[in-house]
Design a protein around this nucleic acid. Sequence first.
DNA 1: CTTCTTTTTAGACATTTGTCCAGTAAAAGC
DNA 2: GCTTTTACTGGACAAATGTCTAAAAAGAAG
Lengths: 187, 187
Amino acid sequence: MEKLKYYFSAMGFNDNDLEKIVAAFKLQHFKKNESFVEEGKTSRYIGLVDSGMFQYYVLIDGEERTTYISIENTFIASVLSFVGEIPALENIRALTDGAIFLISRVNLKKLVNEIPLFKDFYINLLEQSICGIDATRHDLIVLSGEQRYEKMLREEPHLLQRIPLQYLASMLGVTPRHLSRIRNNIR
Amino acid sequence: MEKLKYYFSAMGFNDNDLEKIVAAFKLQHFKKNESFVEEGKTSRYIGLVDSGMFQYYVLIDGEERTTYISIENTFIASVLSFVGEIPALENIRALTDGAIFLISRVNLKKLVNEIPLFKDFYINLLEQSICGIDATRHDLIVLSGEQRYEKMLREEPHLLQRIPLQYLASMLGVTPRHLSRIRNNIR
DNA sequence: CTTCTTTTTAGACATTTGTCCAGTAAAAGC
DNA sequence: GCTTTTACTGGACAAATGTCTAAAAAGAAG
């Protein structure tokens, strides 16, 4: 849990608050292929990925389509399920062994209400998330598959190093066959 | 400004808070084609649309691509510019005559800090926005243009009544030519 | 009502992207 | 190191979608 403490102390929390915050989280380990969120079940947790890679996906007539991948030091949740407290429309599972610092919605709301700075932290997290998600939505409308791949190559090359191409293809909204063509075109 | 007062009183604010809130907004009128946000300029305002239709768009080699449309009673902002206080990457303009209740980021933050319930309101607004934007992102990855059109037909038929098809097509990530084909297929 | 403008539809053809599949390469397990 | 599985590439063809364009339809203006 030292990592968690370090993360939040870097955000300016004092020792007293830090203790409260860290106590509200629990570290959960995941084996490769283990589920964090299952479609149809309500997921009341949001987490900070400690280690590993986690795949968001849905099954479309038996075939899996990846919609997102979370890696270390990013937040992870099935947003609609977490916020709306309703059954998830997607699955999230570990692509590798890993671990997540988890906090329930109830405990999160408690921290927000009890620690003024944590409210700012949460608002900031939400605002940053909106920016990221909206930029992705924007690109899906405005850019071609090839342009989205090039952008990822430019701005997030570390993802290309680690995430198997079949998953990336899906996130980019193209088939693996087509991603192979794109990669071929670019060189 | 009565509408604004009504909107927030429905959210449970008392008269004292209501006065503060309403005072923080100003109603701005827009003529058809007038700009609310211009690419390259920082937009420090978020608004609640009072009346009219507003188009988000970018120019891609001279051609305009619509990424979103806001109508009455929804919030409107160039998110990245508003949150990051950086130049906007998109344009927003009135598709019809209309008006927006505007509030600056500074005033918004003030309300968040001074009125506890307003903090909850803002957090809720952010959470709901994330859900909506993420669902759209999800659909752009997982559904075909035709399926996205059918979903809009099912879930937001009021948009189809009002928004010219050329703009809808762009929002759905297809060309007007293709949307015409889709509409033809469905009947 | 008539004219002018804007929006929508759709044909013909080009390009992009997907499907199916097999071969190769790479990784994991023993 | 060998075997088995998983990931990646690319050919051939099919389907989806885009481009260009003109005509029809609908809406706005006088």
